[in-house]
Design a protein around this nucleic acid. Structure first.
Lengths: 198, 198
DNA sequence: TTGATTAATAGACTGCAGTCTACTAAATGC
DNA sequence: GCATTTAGTAGACTGCAGTCTATTAATCAA
């Protein structure tokens, strides 16, 4: 196996051989993030990323096995999933709308990359699982959790199905994103209203 | 421009030059359909399709500008959208469940290809529009229509939002498909119940 | 028959992601 | 020091989608 700790935990685990250069990882992620945001996932070749980062091809593939893994890491580092703040409690319908509006607001910057990563996941099961575990599942969990709480608080009728409704919410999000349709505050509210009823 | 009618309408429009050979188109679509079903979209190279079809590369690209366009055509010819039958009227909830169960049943055969086409649409706006117009929009329309009728029949409360609910339905479908999760009769029923309420 | 036009074929070519090879560099343990 | 191990660089290589060029074949109009 490899060492590859690279100060991930702070305690470098005393592996033999030359240690990984954390600066190389940083440069790759920063460059990938910038180039993909600026020019788009499919327009930016690996050769451009390593050239701008000033790093060899093999150094990239020592760390990530595909372009998609690198880009996921790059965006993950930046923000992407740190939307997972605790949500305001009193009004669950409003909390859901706010949560969605927050995600949708980030789509201006990250939406195109997100679409590319979802696409990449369809051709690469390993990446699909990684993407699901790191990006999809946590967000789904937040909504499911919120809906369970809303149900406990009596704001959502007991007959409703939080897991299904969470699939409705994220499904509508994905469906509109992947079909190139708008997603804004209005849609956040509309989705929340659709879940909680009129 | 080209002639490219190829008996599409029956009335060959008297274009100059050598006419397209309909047998070439047939062989390409049949071969593409079979190979993609058997081996998967990403596993089947163009070179294999033209080799098995016994046709030149250029003949393919004279008809379709990308692999995705060919495969969409191949699956479209076979079935794929002919699920658009008129639906039973008395029970709209049951009609929706049946409609979905029908789609889900076809996923065993076509689900992998559908995922690949959705993925391809994310990197190719021209194809995304074609795919949307030919595949996505008609199905969405069916559900929206059904929900409007259900609302008129009093089976769906007047406060509900058919366009949004349709996005919920197809969204949940896409979301689960793209995340590699099961879609069967149980889910069809569950989604229909989620739309119409408990 | 000839010319114009488009289709079909064969195969070279480009740009891409990802792999592989050869070599050099930095760390550890003796 | 020296051996071992892993990271780094440079660059060749493979397989892919899609483009391009050259040549031949089929149709229509004159």
């Amino acid at each position: 196996m490899q060492s590859h700790d690279e100060k991930g935990t702070g305690m470098t685990e005393k592996t033999p051989g030359r240690p990984r250069d954390a600066a190389v990882s940083r440069k790759l992620k920063d460059t990938a993030l910038r180039l993909v945001r600026d020019k788009g996932y499919d327009t930016v070749p690996i050769s451009a990323i390593i050239a701008e980062a000033g790093v060899s091809r093999q150094s990239l593939y020592n760390r990530w096995s595909t372009k998609a893994e690198l880009v996921l890491d790059a965006f993950y580092d930046d923000s992407f999933t740190r939307v997972a703040q605790p949500l305001p409690r009193p009004d669950h319908r409003g909390a859901l709308a706010t949560f969605l509006a927050d995600i949708f607001a980030h789509l201006a910057e990250n939406g195109a990359a997100l679409r590319s990563l979802i696409a990449a996941a369809q051709a690469d099961e390993t990446f699909r699982v990684a993407f699901h575990d790191r990006f999809v599942a946590p967000r789904e969990e937040i909504v499911t959790q919120l809906l369970h709480e809303a149900q406990a608080a009596g704001e959502l009728p007991p007959g409703r199905d939080p897991e299904l409704l969470s699939a409705f919410v994220h499904g509508a999000f994905w469906y509109r994103l992947l079909n190139g349709q708008t997603l804004d505050d209005t849609w956040a509210r509309r989705i929340a209203d659709g879940v909680f009823g009129p």
